Amino acid sequence: MELYFLGTNAGVPTLQRNVTSIALRLLEERRSMWLFDCGEGTQHQILRSPLKMTRLEKIFITHLHGDHIFGLPGLLSSRSAQGATSPVTIYGPKGIKAYIETSLDISQSRVNYSLEVVEHSGGVLFEDDGFRVESALLEHRAESFGYRITEKDRPGNLDLERLESYGLKPGPLYGRLKRGESVQTPDGQEVHAADVLLAPKKGRIVTILGDTRPCANIVPLAKGSDLLVHEATFMHELQDIANEYYHSTALQAAEAASEAGVKELMLTHFSSRYKDTEHLQPLLDEAKQVFPNTRLAEDFGLYPVQR
């Protein structure tokens, strides 16, 4: 599980940073990637990255401002032109379906794969044996959502020493035990999975927020996350402007991370007034005063989610 940032700027792109899009790579977990927001130029960023659009499985849109959705029609159309056939599901606020259908229809774009658009107002959006995705409304000028992605716990590895003590050799019986079944040893002794499985592998939790100013739903949504991605459009000296435009400061993001008890905070969605990494350093410094384990997201930056 890794996050790959395709754009970290707010509002408009600059020569240094594109507008918002984040890929969650789940290559080991489900051989796919999920995209969070798709600002203009996202498909160009993908071309310059190790990401493959054939791996795209789901797109989660936080809100309908242009810097988060203007890249969608082109990306969907190009994916089809490249021969991708696997289905894609898009989740977003009310209006996202009309935007996609109108854009593709008027431009006479063809999508030769199954495309499902799910409009939502929060709650549990997706769940299977491996993952659960839930959403909550934030506080922005447009209806904006945050997403909590929970990887479910997985069975632990087999205890090879215990298996040897039972006289069990590598083969199909190992697979049955791994699936939680019971097996018999060559001498007829019954061995239960619980006898030979190590502790379960704890699933990871990632919370990715859309644009927001401080609000009540942030902490419950992010509670105990291994990684929180939080917008930090301004330094705290501009908190009045941040509040007026429904954005957050780096310090406010750090306060949310501290209150939610997350393990790591990733700042993104920076105002274009902060031209480069040198100008972003003060945002990082003020956030670290409250939450030391904070990092600045960078375009084309790959960040593993630690277990």
Rank of each mutant, 00 (worst) to 15 (best):
G66Y: 07
G122S: 01
E2N: 04
E286V: 03
N157S: 13
L125M: 10
D299P: 01
G130M: 09
L163V: 08
L267E: 04
R110G: 09
R307H: 15
F126P: 07
R17E: 11
I149Y: 00
S49N: 07
L209V: 02
L15N: 13
L228H: 15
E29L: 06
L125G: 05
E139D: 15
I69D: 00
P186V: 06
P282N: 06
E164K: 09
I106E: 12
N293R: 14
L104R: 02
S182K: 08
A84N: 06
A81E: 14
G74C: 10
F145V: 01
H247F: 15
M1I: 06
A142E: 13
L26D: 13
S107P: 04
V229G: 03
A84M: 04
D187Y: 12
Y174G: 04
R295Y: 15
M266P: 01
T150D: 08
E278K: 12
G180I: 12
S144E: 08
E127T: 07
Q306A: 15
S271Y: 03
V290R: 13
S78F: 06
E139R: 12
T102E: 09
K288V: 15
A10L: 05
L238F: 14
K201D: 03
T62N: 14
F291L: 05
L197R: 14
E298W: 13
S135D: 14
I205D: 01
E244C: 09
E40P: 03
A81Q: 13
R273G: 15
P170H: 05
I22D: 04
A23W: 00
R295P: 08
V191H: 04
F5L: 05
L35M: 06
K94S: 11
G156S: 11
H269E: 05
T42H: 09
A257T: 03
L115Y: 03
S78G: 08
R141G: 12
K201S: 10
I69W: 00
S103G: 14
E298S: 12
A84R: 00
A136T: 14
L209F: 01
R132Y: 09
Q289H: 13
L160D: 11
A10S: 15
E286R: 05
G122R: 01
T233R: 04
L238C: 12
T233S: 12
E2H: 02
P170K: 09
I149Q: 02
G224Q: 05
R31L: 09
G203E: 05
G130Q: 03
G167Q: 03
Y113G: 05
G122H: 04
